[in-house]
Design a protein around this nucleic acid. Structure first.
Lengths: 163, 163
DNA sequence: TATTGTTATACTCTATAACTATA
DNA sequence: TATAGTTATAGAGTATAACAATA
């Protein structure tokens, strides 16, 4: 016999009334009110929707952010991109390898510092990025549908400290 | 010559004025207004603070969520915990192995279904969880300090759809 | 000496598949 | 047949360290 909602004696942590979750399965209880947990669940949802929405062009959130930053700041070095996005420079090497193999990005030797590369979008990369941005905008509309446009606006405002 | 803020013709997504980032280094431009990016940066910050704040007791966010759910719903099966938290059941095995090795959680053979385990906190686990919760509350206060108590409240409200 | 890009390694997390013992 | 727990493997992602070329 299944026992999905155990009736074993358990009291609320705080005085709050029981609020069954959406499916009416098991109460999260202690996790309600934890910002990190809420944010983690939301991030999983939003990344999955992004990946799904841009699946046809095979672009993941990190690839999109790399191309967007390069597109907005052509000539950046790898170090600058890595720092800006909080990516390890070792990992960026592989990310750029794959974007370069797809002819979306190119590494140009810097003439001011022969250790570093100036990063640029290829013409094909610029055209592609325009398409990616349209799909990303569609993804943002999914977020609007999920939490409401007004809440999305508030969320971006609250999190503006984390650019 | 560096070119950190290119003047290449690209207009703001919305009508908002340019807002240079905190360090005044390189503009994110195209990434402003993307909910997923903002949420990712915030999640990194909040998890790092959680890990730092609970470093003395060596408890990571996922371990905390597992213990909290078991504490609030004693007798849950591994499948139920995995589904509830969105963790792979294969991964939960290892998580529970380590929590059990630390005498925080125990697997009790279910008498109604001999395939499954009923999960419980040990007495030591219950005492520890109370301590973890105090540290987690301290972590939440850090979030308050970072974004403001009112914004934290709004954030939890907006993300309540993702329990 | 320090920094840029690169390579390599280890550890965590995610995603699967397969196996066992039960149901 | 299907499910719960387990084991194993492969792929991302993260964190380090070390190296060559250059500053």
């Amino acid at each position: 016999m299944k026992n999905p909602v155990p009736t074993v004696g358990k009291r609320r942590e705080n005085g709050k009334a029981r609020r069954p979750d959406r499916d009416g399965e098991i109460g999260l209880d202690g996790l309600v009110g934890h910002a990190g947990y809420a944010v983690r669940r939301f991030q999983i949802w939003i990344f999955q929707d992004f990946i799904r929405t841009l699946a046809a062009v095979d672009i993941k959130p990190t690839q999109y952010s790399v191309m967007t930053v390069i597109g907005a700041n052509p000539g950046m070095t790898q170090m600058a991109v890595a720092k800006r996005l909080g990516i390890e420079r070792a990992r960026l090497v592989h990310l750029l390898d794959s974007l370069e193999a797809r002819n979306l990005v190119k590494r140009v030797p810097s003439r001011t510092d022969r250790r570093s590369h100036a990063l640029h979008l290829t013409p094909s990369g610029q055209a592609s990025l325009r398409q990616f941005k349209m799909l990303a905008a569609e993804h943002e509309r999914h977020v609007d549908e999920k939490i409401g446009p007004e809440n999305r606006r508030r969320l971006l405002e609250i999190l503006s400290a984390f650019h």
